[in-house]
Nucleic acid binder design. Structure first.
Length: 674
RNA sequence: GCCGGCGUAGCUCAGUUGGCAGAGCAGCUGAUUCGUAAUCAGCAGGUCGAGGGUUCAAGUCCCCCCGCCGGCUCCA
């Protein structure tokens, strides 16, 4: 008997039936053997060890491909589990998938693990790689598999298998099973296992040939993780690690992680004297120092200017409001756990605001609104307080008191798509202005627990999609990810460690117009319910500032740099001239200062570089007598000696941000072109 | 909130089997007047996160709080 193999490039070749994919590879491309980690048969990934017993379309997976790398990491996760099992007998295993930068395995060990244990596990893994343990696949009927896992004392595996059984019985689709991560053998009565030495694991596969393939790896950290992500279920120990095709690639990755730490906004915030926090003030509450506050002011100035140009009305609203307001809005019911406790004064209860919306509604309600007034766009840099659980706080990126660049747009149903499109476009304008060209976008749809007619939800979701398409946005759909009151479009930017943070959110709100019963008078002289869009573009100034610090690694572009130029006299006697230079720059609206400290030039240069000041101006005898400055750009670039006038001209060109116009024609409110 | 780790000078960190709290940087004072990433010397700086316990003796061992870090859950 023989089988015919068809390759990706169309080549066909005959093999004896039962040939392994490794055997096929050895014939058709022996040189690629070293690089090849797995194969595909008719599009399904399989082990190189698996056998062909019928004609098939065959492909090979390179260890350097995304798919190959994640296969390697998945196998590394197994190897790690094998090592843990060897060192800590009685460990119970949950799931161990490959993830973006590596892999993890969730384990319930017999005792708490320490970072030192990680080193022991890693050493054990190295031992196992040297033993060249094969990853051997075998299959069992579901009920036998359950019995086997029970016998092995693996309750989490049993639960996974039982879920597979129950969902199969209920006729649930593949997507449901997919949620169970990597451990499932899709769609059959049989489930697959892999053994690695003495360690046996329920697993869909595929895996590398043997443990010696996993050479470049490292265990990185330990963390807790709830079983199935449910905080009511047991807390497991998650061990994170990473693996690469080569040692060099691994080291490069670890180096990138170190680099990322160097641009951590919490470190830079202190080093550059931008902001701080204090136990005595409270967690998640930010003290903006002069330099940070200056950057914030510049951001806010641009924001206000552009909002006015784009047809927004700026408003201010209070920080506290009476309980009735929050009852009407539904916040006390739906959001109460995040609100600071009530304050009782003269028999009235007040709450600090966690959102600005109810106040904006009240501004809308302050008089009768006509259809001719719409769309109305109320914008506010509104400071809100939310009592976030202590464990989620994170520098500037997750705080308890923050200022949203908030706005609420009240419009007719017909205006909705246009308004959302404009909001997205406006957001992209700001992101570009701050140097962000990359972000993830997603549209979140109706969650389980939601208010409002599902038909309306569909309609609104379609409107969001149309708007996103019109704005030219690439986006993913996040099913059931919307807020309880409406669907939304989110834009996320990434921090230094690659963690995504939501900045822009454009949310449709069914809830508040109903609850506050707001209306406008239509051309039929009857009341109508306006549509309401809630949007924040930068998100919160705190978070945006944090992401911005990391994005620029603290080296702000000229227009945002707290100090734009520092003049360094080479000796004390040149201080008067240094002050002249500084005064000239300040007269030209540049933020300049003189370093009068009694230090050598090298010291002052180093300090200015570390403070990431864009222009470093050295003046001594030569410059003082000729009316020039020696100009050094941040980073060590020498621009040579130039007359003060020329320097002023050079610097003035950089004082304003380089703004690109938004991509859509503007209606009322003027153009956003500079 | 949960799991794990860590809290020593403003910052980064040493501190042996329990035995007189240290260094570098930053700060202050003085000397030096210097040409593109750290001049030298001196001084000052601490309830070792808080509280309780064991001990002749606790930064060190135990208990319990608080805070921070990495994740999980949750979110701008």
């Amino acid at each position: 008997m023989s089988v015919v193999v068809t390759l990706d490039d169309g080549r066909r070749q005959e093999f004896a039936s039962g040939v392994t994919l490794l055997g096929v590879l050895e014939v058709i491309d022996p040189a690629a053997k070293k690089e090849t980690i797995g194969a595909t048969v008719n599009g399904y990934p399989v082990d190189l060890r698996s056998r062909l017993d019928q004609d098939a379309h065959v492909g090979f997976i390179s260890v350097s491909s995304e798919e190959g790398l994640s296969m390697l990491r998945h196998s590394a996760a197994h190897l790690m589990a094998a090592a843990v099992e060897a060192l800590f007998p009685g460990s119970r295993f949950a799931i161990g998938p490959a993830i973006a930068d590596g892999f993890y395995y969730d384990i319930e060990p017999p005792r708490a693990l320490t970072p030192e244990d990680l080193q022991a596990v890693e050493a054990k893994m190295r031992e196992l790689t040297e033993q060249k343990l094969p990853f051997v696949r075998f299959e069992l009927p579901l009920e036998e598999a359950i019995a086997k896992m029970n016998a092995l004392g693996q309750p989490y595996k049993v639960e996974i298998l039982e879920t597979i059984r129950d969902r199969a019985a209920a006729g649930a689709g593949g997507a449901e099973l997919e949620e169970l991560e990597t451990e499932v053998n899709r769609g059959a009565d049989l489930v697959s296992f892999y053994s690695t030495g003495r360690f046996v694991d329920l697993c869909r596969g595929p895996h590398v040939l043997d443990s010696s393939v996993i050479r470049a790896f490292k265990l990185t950290h330990l963390a807790g993780a709830y079983w199935r992500g449910d905080e009511r279920r047991p807390m497991l120990t998650r061990i994170y690690g990473t693996a690469f095709q080569t040692q060099e690639a691994l080291e490069q990755h670890l180096f990138r992680l170190e680099e990322a730490k160097r641009r951590d906004h919490r470190r830079l915030g202190r080093d550059l004297d931008l902001f701080s926090m204090d136990d005595e003030v409270g967690g998640g509450l930010i003290l903006w120092h002069p330099k940070g506050a200056l950057v914030r002011t510049l951001i806010e100035d641009l924001w206000r200017e552009e909002h006015l140009k784009n047809g927004y009305d700026l408003i201010y609203t209070p920080h506290v409001g009476r309980a009735k307001l929050w009852e009407t809005s539904g916040h006390l019911d739906f959001y109460g756990e995040y609100m600071y406790a009530k304050m009782e004064m003269e028999g009235n209860d007040y709450y600090v605001k966690p959102m600005n919306c109810p106040f904006h509604i009240k501004v809308f309600q302050s008089k009768v609104r006509s259809y001719r007034d719409l769309p109305l766009r109320f914008a506010e840099l509104g400071t809100v307080y939310r009592f976030e659980r202590v464990g989620v706080l994170h520098g500037l990126l997750r705080v308890r008191g923050f200022t949203q660049d908030d706005a609420h747009i009240f419009c007719t149903p017909e205006q909705m798509v246009e308004e959302v499109t404009r909001a997205i476009d406006f957001s992209l304008f700001f992101l570009r202005a701050f140097g962000f060209d990359e972000y993830d976008a997603c549209i979140a749809t109706r969650p389980e627990k939601a208010i409002g007619d599902p038909a309306l939800w569909d309609e609104a979701t379609v409107a969001l999609r149309r708007a996103a398409d019109r704005a030219g946005l690439q986006y993913k759909i996040e099913e059931r990810g919307g807020a309880f009151y409406g669907p939304k479009i989110d834009l996320k930017v990434k921090d230094a460690l690659g963690r995504p943070w939501q900045c822009t959110t454009v949310q449709f709100d069914f809830n508040l117009p109903e609850r506050f019963d707001i209306t406008y008078v239509g051309d039929d002289n009857r009341p109508h319910r306006p549509f309401m869009v809630h949007r924040a573009l930068l998100g919160s100034l705190e978070r945006f500032f944090g992401v911005l610090i990391e994005h620029y690694a603290g080296a702000f572009p000229m227009w945002l740099a707290p100090v734009q130029a520092r003049v360094i006299p080479v000796a004390d006697r040149f201080q008067p001239y240094a002050r002249q230079v500084s005064d000239r720059l300040r007269a030209a609206k540049a933020r300049a200062e003189v370093d009068v400290r009694n230090e050598k030039v090298g010291f002052k240069i180093r300090d200015a570089e570390m403070q990431k000041i864009p222009y470093i101006l050295v003046v001594g005898d030569k410059e003082a007598t000729t009316g020039t400055v020696s100009v050094r750009r941040r980073g060590g670039q020498d621009l040579g000696v130039m007359p003060i006038d020329e320097l002023v001209a050079v610097i003035q060109r950089e004082l304003r941000p380089a703004l690109q116009p938004a991509g859509l024609p503007q209606s009322e409110g003027g153009s956003i072109h500079q």
